[in-house]
Design a protein around this nucleic acid. Structure first.
Lengths: 230, 230
DNA sequence: CCCATTATGTTCGATAGAGAACATACTGAA
DNA sequence: TTCAGTATGTTCTCTATCGAACATAATGGG
């Protein structure tokens, strides 16, 4: 399977089912900031990420936001929406450009509830995503910015398979629910310690080992949840 | 149906299915602090709350914790665990004494995946619970203690149907991911404004209207998610 | 190559909250 | 009724973070 169409969930499906799904899917490029999901709006497509990262964020009325999820090729974006018809308070958009295999949401919905194997895989993903979310929910309230920044950077790295990617500090601030000033300070600190290099929206991990130490305990917990092979 | 055995999920099932389930369930009293779920331990029973409140909390290594869920008679405690076999990082225990209809977890699991209607109801609950969680995750990081305290009190009230219940400030602190001092100050402020009365672990809501104003925007969002009639 | 734009760096005052220490007051069991 | 235990009230110092303001520096389109 070519690298650009590899998605963990699809890859682990029985061959026949995978083929059937793939035949109805379309590989789409996803530039930065592409909106995949808005609060209260039912999704048109489901996006099985094959590269890049989707951020799931909850925004408050005053515009402040905080990360509540990060989805790469280990998952797909609209999983939660398959479970029912409640209004989602979240926004999802492309944080690191990439691509996804997309399928009309209604079609996936039908398939999921008609195909037990697929349903199980979807629910397993929902479970892992949810457990990760509980950890991040506590993390947001309890840990300091520098630890959370380190965690975030590592989480992104896991999903892009590269020590180098693009993220402005302004953007990071809204992800971490912090002010840009604080992010600059935290990033500066990590940079002075030689863990990362930051250059106008380009970030590079220099020492992943030490970064792990700088991150809060939430990182390995969340990583195991989202990147364990089952 | 007697008040003590009323649970929203069970109540909305087709009569035959409900009867079948109820015949295999046991009504149990749940005193304060009863543990229902520990991190990484598969649940033995599922508890459909009929009164009282279960708190779902994520604890960090240093003992600090934060709320990631509140379950009353609108739901049941171990829903997430039905979806797969990943390790949950959460702890669940009784926060306000009450009762629940419990059923061996394995038995419910079998039933859920054999009975589409039941599965749908379960997934709907999981979805609502999850969307609420995304809101609370952001809330934990972005809102101030007094607003969150007001929100918490209202959420508890919704689930006990009473303006009066027992909660120590020490406990509230660990729920809100704050220090006891901060909770005392916030509670004192709400008390001086005449919104609540606090007396040695006994809290009484005096002015629910104003409390709504004092709470952050998250309260109505979460309430609609968890207490909407579908 | 230049300039407008955008991203980062830096400083400063203000503040929410942490954490410790101690005082007070209520409660229930003996 | 008394006392030990527990919950709340209060004060203080300390620190992380905010928010605003401004400086600097890189970037890319013309």
């Amino acid at each position: 399977m070519p690298r650009t169409s590899s998605n963990s969930i699809l890859d682990h499906l029985p061959a026949a089912l995978r083929k059937s799904l793939l035949s109805r899917m379309e590989l789409v490029d996803l530039p930065v900031n592409t909106m995949l999901l808005r609060p209260g709006v039912p999704p048109e497509f489901a996006h099985f990420m094959t590269s890049g990262i989707t951020s799931v964020v909850t925004y408050m009325a005053n515009g402040a936001g905080a990360e509540v999820g990060l989805i790469g090729k280990e998952g797909f974006v609209e999983a939660m929406h398959l479970l029912g018809s409640a209004n989602s308070p979240t926004t999802a958009f492309i944080q690191v450009e990439g691509s996804a295999l997309r399928i009309p949401f209604k079609e996936l919905e039908k398939e999921v509830f008609a195909t037990p194997v697929l349903l199980r895989r979807v629910l397993e993903f929902v479970q892992r995503h949810n457990f990760a979310l509980t950890q991040l929910a506590a993390c947001n309230g309890l840990h300091e910015i520098e630890e959370r920044l380190a965690r975030w950077v590592l989480m992104v790295q896991d999903r892009v398979d590269s020590p180098k990617f693009d993220l402005t500090q302004e953007f990071l601030a809204s992800m971490l629910g912090a002010s840009r000033t604080s992010v600059t300070l935290a990033a500066g600190s990590l940079q002075r310690s030689g863990l990362i290099e930051y250059k106008r929206g380009h970030i590079r991990i220099l020492d992943a080992e030490k970064l792990l130490t700088a991150a809060c305990e939430c990182y390995p917990i969340v990583r195991d949840l989202t990147h364990d092979d089952r």
